[in-house]
Design a binder for these strands. Sequence first.
DNA 1: TAGCTCGTTGGACAA
DNA 2: TTTGTCCAACGAGCT
Length: 484
Amino acid sequence: MAKTTSRPWIVWFRDDLRLSDHPALTAAMESGAPMLCLYVLDQTSRQHERPPGAASQWWLAQSLRALAASLEKVGATLTLRRGDTAQIIADLARETDVAGVAWNEIEIAPQRAIADDVEAALTELGITVKRCRSDLLAAPAQIRNKDGRGLRVFTPFWKRVQALGDPPKPLPAPTKTTPAATGPSDRLEDWQLEPQRPDWAGGLRETWTPGEAAAQARLAQFLKTDVSAYATGRDFPGRDVTSRLSPYLRYGEISPRQVWYAARFASAARPAIAGGVDKFLSELGWREFCRHLLFDHPDLATRNLQSAFDAFPWQYDDDALRAWQKGLTGYPIVDAGMRELWHTGVMQNRVRMVVASFLVKHLLIDWRLGEQWFWDTLVDGDPGSNPANWQWVAGCGADAAPYFRVFNPILQGEKFDADGGYVRRWVPELAALPDKLIHQPWTATPVELKAAGITLGDNYPMPIIDHRKGRERALAAYATVRNS
DNA sequence: TAGCTCGTTGGACAA
DNA sequence: TTTGTCCAACGAGCT
């Protein structure tokens, strides 16, 4: 039985908006003290820190509501404060005479810096600090090459992570807590994380239920049904066999090790799904890989990992960028992807590669502009995965695609959306075209276009660039970097 | 340590 | 229609 003491502990919630497998929460519980749960919105700018994008902020608001409701069920309340984190926590610690503060570490430079500030402020006050780990399967310090650097090739990286064996077992959620007396809390509405005028979040509300309970339900459902088709089906945007867990992982409504254990357990019970589970876990490995890259390269979102690309002849074409953002490029698979993103806050993985390749290679627009758009519109916009994967597509990143690999948006459509179901869903103005024309409407005859109710250049654009010309121009541009 | 092998996701073209 | 080859070269990781 835990001993009781009257001085409370603060549990500082960060990108870990859950009750289960929350080491900091468990540590505070074990102290037997009353518990004060806190979330701080820190909008003071720091080097390399990025405020979440707009879609991601919407998610954060829903997730905080869900967390507050879960905490209430176990007798705790969530206190919201806004401002400089170290200042706020130190003030609250003084006001409420706390014995200690616990939190889970985020292994990203600016987040570590904030946590260091908090620790320094608390140490000065003589308050105990407990820093826990749960946001990664392996700490960056555990995966180093002989020169002490992080690995830059995925396969050996993932082998090393797996060789560490199982991560610590996930912790259970508390069933009851002793609440501490809390001071005033901000109102979530006052933080204005959700869009008002215009309210563009309708598609997000329709698509998602943020929160820990929904994350757990989604994982269970995925492992019960979709994972068996995952290894092959994940490439096809019209097949709904992916886990859809990425935004939950972003804000820690589920932890990587919870996913790891649930998947391993399911695989042991049903060997037939082992292939799907391995593939799925390797995607968790990519999240891990990208976070480790970010750990070593805090400026991952702004600086080419391969410096030869600093001389790349990017074009600045606002019209083309806007056409891409709005899904009006004239390439149906690209437009479908961009519209799916705008509506749902996510995009199927293969289509992400196709649209990114199109922006960077066909349009020669700087990958950072694409990365920024994704950052702003994705609900799963991850500080590691988003820039790392954009750099991968652009060819300037770690383990990157070779420069001559230019996705052909027509072939990709025909191969991975053969029946056109995905395009018809997101680009309804093309729905009446026959399958053989749906990925290249400009090749349809006037009669075929008329029958489908399409006037190119009017209710659907002509391609903003010819594929063959775009490809040749991209290869020429990349050749200048190669020879520089 | 030196040498060897390999690299998440492709496309175009010739035969 | 399908298959093989080429499109670069280099650095990381491995043995």
